[in-house]
Nucleic acid binder design. Structure first.
Length: 654
DNA sequence: GTAGGGTTAG
């Protein structure tokens, strides 16, 4: 008896056998039945399911239509193709047309309805379930998991209690459902109530806990897993999930501890050990990803080199690691070396070159890529936008639509930034219209809209978007609006909004303070500016960047406090850049402080010898003061340095 | 042919 019991346990843990239930007997019956199927029909059925598996649905349908003999399996296979594609109407049509239905037909159509979004479909699925004459445990599991996946736990639990024989699959579905709703306690309780847990029980619980940020609970459960768990010898997937979860939070050390806990058995001659709980390729990939996420490319590479078995994901992770640290040479080396690059590999390389400013290579790879997808288009469009080749971005955007690729929120967000860069309000409004037609504007999209409108001079439209966001705002939203006000010289509005933000206890970022300081400059508030500058450091622990110093210099210089501004420049821990000297020079012009102007202009000329602006400014100042000798000296210097005066241009589109 | 779950790109 004992060996038989052991064999049963082994089968169970491999998901071949579960709780005793009708479906097992039924599936055995259908196996024997398939032997009676005429060979031609049997092969045609196999062909249909193969075509569906590789995603060639229309070919499968053509074959289905051409068959002069079909059995229930034929109809069911065809139906499953539509169910997978969420084409529920077509699946339903087959269901209604088929001459004979078995339990699988019913289960299929019900699962189809439950995997469609919208309560309409769920009700229809439920109606069919209620109409069933005979149900097996798959029917129950389908409906329970259907409710759970849609977050409707009340109905799921009711059915769970009503089912004739509870089984581990439905319990697992409940766990997933609870965690989808963030109900950690109920999930853990359901888990504890399962008499014999399998590996999917652990996976469902651990992955849900990780998604809810409950890493400590997950680790505890994983370590206390006990006797009576069929899944306990196959916990590697759950370990992998938690490793990845730690990686997401940057907790590399915890991840490494877990990784080291998984045995790395390799039998003699490098053969894989019989033991099932051992590191697999996903464990290595996940651990590598942790290092990649924290920018520790050396440790990631170390693991990569130690791996005896690599899959596409391994290569892609390593490539994306090099992309992140801008080592495109190594990234493309791996890309060439890897056995069969997939869409993800191509896209990593494309976005890598895009982000690192090599648009030519990005487009080269993009054009050579065999099956471009939405992400490929988005990567290359974002690259053009980031590198300020706005017209190139727009060209790609229209090209993409000509080729039948539908833009999504990522595309549209990039295109909005393009409109902002081009200062093209007309185009921006068109894109806004387009957006409302095809996606629900979410936070990132709304944020891009605010930036676009304010950069294009339509501050009122920016306000409308901002106010429509009501409760759903993040720091970026606030930064965009405050920055918009500051950009338009509406200093007091910007400061007022900043106060509201502080009252709501939203933590500002360094970007917020760039806008706040700019607002102070525009509003002529010297004391307020100094106060905000030190509040940034003291109250919020934000280290001032050179942009903040530039703003502070701007604030002081505009008010004619040029000596104070110069003191700031001398005391700051950065080498003053164009913006800093530019701010000083701007103040000098307004207040006719020629001695400071000379200092600032000379510094600017050293930084950018080809720019005519500082020469012109200095020349005009001397001229205004009647110091014609000095003015002439500037003009000669300009000629000597071969600088041409550029014709002015306005950057505001009418 | 139907039910529960792990890693990578914009």
């Amino acid at each position: 008896m004992a060996p038989l019991y052991g064999a049963l346990r082994k089968l169970r843990s491999r998901n071949i056998l579960q709780f005793p239930c009708i479906s097992c007997c039924r599936s055995l019956a259908s196996v024997t039945k398939s032997h009676k199927t005429p060979p031609l029909l049997y092969h045609a059925n196999k062909k249909i399911s193969h075509l569906i598996r590789i995603g060639r649905l229309s070919e499968a349908r053509a074959l289905f239509d051409s068959m002069n003999q079909r059995n229930t399996v034929t109809w069911n296979s065809m139906m499953s193709g539509y169910v997978h594609r969420r084409e529920i109407a077509k699946a339903r049509q087959l269901f209604d047309e088929m001459p004979q239905r078995d339990i699988v037909s019913w289960n299929l159509i019900i699962s189809g309805y439950f995997s469609c979004r919208g309560s309409r479909y769920i009700e229809e699925g439920r109606k069919l379930f209620d109409e069933m004459q005979e149900r097996d445990c798959v029917s129950w599991n389908t409906v329970i998991s259907g409710y759970a996946k849609n977050g409707r736990m009340k109905e799921a639990l009711k059915l769970f209690d009503a089912m004739p024989e509870p089984n581990v699959v439905s319990s697992n579905a409940l766990i997933t459902g609870f965690l989808l709703n963030g109900d950690v306690d109920s999930a853990v309780e359901s888990f504890r109530r399962i008499p014999v847990r399998d590996s999917a029980s652990f996976n469902a619980l651990i992955s849900g806990l990780v998604r809810n940020g409950e890493l400590n609970v997950a680790a505890k459960i994983l370590h206390e897993c006990g006797e009576g768990d069929d899944g306990k010898d196959d916990l590697v997937a759950a370990y992998n999930t938690l490793i990845a979860g730690y990686g997401q939070k940057g907790m590399v050390e915890e991840a490494r501890c877990l990784f080291d806990e998984i045995p790395d058995y390799q039998g003699e001659d490098g053969n894989k050990s019989e033991r099932r709980f051992r590191r697999n390729v996903v464990s290595w990939n996940s651990m590598m990803m942790c290092y990649v996420k924290t920018g520790d490319i050396v440790s990631a590479r170390e693991l990569f080199d130690r791996m005896t078995e690599r899959d596409t994901c391994t290569w892609n992770t390593m490539i994306s690691g090099y992309v992140q640290v801008s080592d495109m040479e190594e990234a493309s080396k791996l890309f060439i070396e890897m056995p069969s690059p997939d869409a993800l590999s191509w896209n990593s390389i494309i976005s890598g070159y895009s982000q690192n400013g090599d648009l030519g290579l990005a487009k080269d790879f993009f054009l050579r890529m065999p099956n471009k997808n939405l992400i490929s288009w988005n990567s290359v469009i974002a690259g053009y936008e980031k590198n300020e080749d706005y017209n190139g971005a727009i060209e790609l955007f229209s090209q993409m639509q000509l080729e039948g690729e539908r833009p999504d929120r990522h595309t549209l967000s990039s295109v909005l930034s393009v409109c902002a860069g081009l200062v093209d309000l007309y185009l921006g409004k068109q894109i806004h219209q387009f957006i409302t037609k095809i996606v629900l504007p979410d936070m990132p999209i709304n944020n891009s809209l605010i930036t676009m409108y304010s950069r294009c001079g339509a501050i009122a439209d920016a306000c409308i978007v901002f106010n429509e966001m009501k409760l759903y705002k993040d720091v970026i939203t606030w930064n965009a609006m405050i920055g918009g006000y500051a950009f338009h010289g509406l200093g007091s509005e910007a400061l007022e909004l900043f106060k509201v933000m502080q009252r709501l206890k939203i933590h500002p970022t360094y970007i917020t303070f760039i806008s706040v300081l700019n607002a102070c400059a525009h509003a002529g508030l010297v004391e307020e500016g100094r106060r905000q500058f030190s509040s940034m450091i003291k109250d919020y622990g934000i280290k001032p960047r050179i942009e903040h110093f530039a703003s502070l210099v701007d604030i002081l210089a505009r008010q004619g406090q040029l000596q104070e501004a110069l003191d700031v420049i001398k005391s700051m821990p950065f080498k003053p850049d164009k913006a800093v000297w530019g701010a000083l020079l701007g103040g000098c012009r307004v207040h006719n402080k020629v001695e400071f102007a000379q200092l600032a202009a000379e510094a600017l000329i050293r930084l950018e010898p080809e720019s005519s602006a500082p020469y012109v400014l200095l020349y005009n100042m001397y001229a205004n003061l009647g110091q014609w000798d000095d003015a002439e000296r500037v003009r000669v210097l300009m000629e000597k340095n071969n600088v041409k005066k550029q014709t002015g241009y306005s950057w505001v589109d009418s």
